[in-house]
Computed example of a mutant assay.
Amino acid sequence: MEIIRYAALKPRPWRNGGGVTRELARFPESAAEGTQDGSWDWRVSIAEMSKAGDFSAFPGMDRVLTVVEGELLLLSVDGAEHPLEQYRPFRFSGDAAAAGALPTGNIRDLNVITRRGAFKGYTSIIELSKKRAHPLFGGQLGILLQGQATATPGAADGGASAAGTEPLDRYDAVVGTDSASPEILGRGFLAVVSIDPAGD
């Protein structure tokens, strides 16, 4: 079971100084790391935005942005304003001229960026249960947004979960697999990011 610990991720400042980004995952992993680089085909990251300003363009990419901390982001996309509240994913083109304003203070957002025609990204926000585990399959990341949770590796034979339960801290990400899907139990909210090949 692979867990990406948020506390271990290196923050990278934006070019405009308006925030920092921590990258959770990208594909291919050999692509150059960095907030502005587009050599990857998809990337999942969490950004802290502390002042209004323009967003970086990602030509040929599609974006799904979800406010995960803070009340409101006023996102302008090609001149149209979209008020984004917490836990409401919003999809827009990486080619668009985008800018953000912070009427209620700093925010943190989850970004899923995928290369158009190659992959498609989705973000769902689910409420966790202490009684019913939520499985994570291949092509998925589960990111703890709020509350307390544990991750347990699934059993390869489809039987009861194996030993090896790990507590999760806020914004830790669990990598899904199809062979022994890890399971998340707890109380709070989990972002489930799915990256699917285009055409599936």
Rank of each mutant, 00 (worst) to 15 (best):
A156G: 09
G60Y: 12
K120S: 15
P135G: 12
L84E: 08
A97Y: 09
D95H: 12
A98Q: 07
L84W: 02
L65S: 04
R132T: 14
S39N: 14
F55V: 02
G154N: 02
S56N: 01
F92R: 04
P103L: 15
G60S: 11
Y122Q: 14
G60M: 09
D109E: 02
A96Y: 06
M61W: 00
P153T: 02
N111D: 04
F55I: 02
R88T: 06
T66E: 01
A97T: 10
D62E: 03
R43L: 08
V68N: 00
T66Q: 05
V112C: 10
Y122E: 15
G164V: 03
A52P: 04
R132I: 15
G158R: 01
D41P: 07
V64N: 04
N106W: 06
T114L: 06
G100S: 12
D54M: 07
G147K: 02
L75R: 08
D41N: 03
A97Q: 11
G70I: 00
V112E: 04
L102P: 05
R88Q: 08
G147T: 00
I113T: 02
G142T: 04
A101F: 11
M61D: 08
N111G: 08
G158I: 03
A98K: 08
D41C: 07
A101V: 13
E71Q: 14
G139H: 09
L145K: 00
W40I: 08
L128P: 07
L141G: 06
G70M: 04
F90D: 02
A118H: 13
